[in-house]
Design a protein around this nucleic acid. Sequence first.
DNA 1: CATCAATTGACAGTAACTCTCAAAAGGGAA
DNA 2: TTCCCTTTTGAGAGTTACTGTCAATTGATG
Lengths: 210, 210
Amino acid sequence: MSTMAAVPTTPEARPEPRLGLRERKKIQTRQAIRRAAYRLFKEQGYDATPVDQIAAAADVSPSTVFRYFPTKEDIVLTDEYDAPMRAALEARPPDESPMESIRHSVLATLRYAFEHEQEDMAERARLLQAVPAIRARSNESMAESGQILAQVLCERTGRPSDDLDVAVFVGAVLGGFQAALMHWARHDGQEDLTGLMEQTLDVFSRGLTL
Amino acid sequence: MSTMAAVPTTPEARPEPRLGLRERKKIQTRQAIRRAAYRLFKEQGYDATPVDQIAAAADVSPSTVFRYFPTKEDIVLTDEYDAPMRAALEARPPDESPMESIRHSVLATLRYAFEHEQEDMAERARLLQAVPAIRARSNESMAESGQILAQVLCERTGRPSDDLDVAVFVGAVLGGFQAALMHWARHDGQEDLTGLMEQTLDVFSRGLTL
DNA sequence: CATCAATTGACAGTAACTCTCAAAAGGGAA
DNA sequence: TTCCCTTTTGAGAGTTACTGTCAATTGATG
């Protein structure tokens, strides 16, 4: 699940003394930029906050901001949960139904993500709802996850990699998740996202009958 | 279905003599800009074609281009099929299953769209595949259609307008359609989109079991 | 400490918009 | 046609998100 994570926890969280000063500084800079951005977005709004201002607030040059985050949207939502997600999916027994595999890996990844970062979730929800560019980026990110999902599923069911049925299946599931995500965002991130996802999966289990 | 249509046919196609000179000129200008853009995109690519160049090729000022199309992406895909789509949906018998209603209205709208414009479809497919910004716009547009769909469905089933199940249902269906659309784009718009959509709807009819 | 590689900041440039204002052109009445 | 009013257009200036280059700085290493 791509959109969930903004402050990557694995590499950023605690500056393990293993790393050299150089690496530690990089992590700090990244954090500083992100923190400054979140604060300013909250205070003034996303569009009203130029990157230059974020740079100034984080005490780095504008060039540096763009070196760390290729686009302004990426400051809000860059995550590293695609790899864990893929691993979780591939760890599932191959004879399990695709839907069941997805249910387990998505929920596990989501729980993992929530453990590591609850703070900015509400703000992220607000931005997701208010800023089209953020939404767009989130969707694109989800679609990439979808590619991975489809790939695994095609391998597992022995279908060609451009099989329409698999693509539709994955598209539908992700579409459902995205709807749940937006529902969550519409409620300002106050509801339990994991619960919403479970409810979403139930809709699918019922064969998508309203 | 939003993404399908770029050259709106209803208002643009034939300059009905009903309209005054003013209106006719507007339609011409709109067409001129779009045609110029499509030609240049085809020749040089989307990113390599600045709006100024499109303006020059269409013999209007850059300001005018932005007056007609709020963003560069909109030159590629602005459509007017949301209204017909909604009408088609609302014309369906209220006791019909949601999925069946959607099937009919989507296919009807799609057929209608295809009747009126086949020309640029291939180029549109190429752009949809190659340009992230276009894809993003297309998705956003689809999501808007989704809002309408969800609204109608909520009314029909007597649920509150922010019902999660309905949102998920709609999200899933649109996700499936989008997957089919991207499949079509990946094959450069050579396959029959209506056929792909029918196949997609079959996947749903089967209760989304792979 | 000296040297090398990675990181950074300053600067210049591009392109997508946005805003404002004056010129031009259609539409209708006298 | 002529005049007047409204809509449309173009010119120009300004903002902002990027991109690329180059020299200065700074951490790593022997």
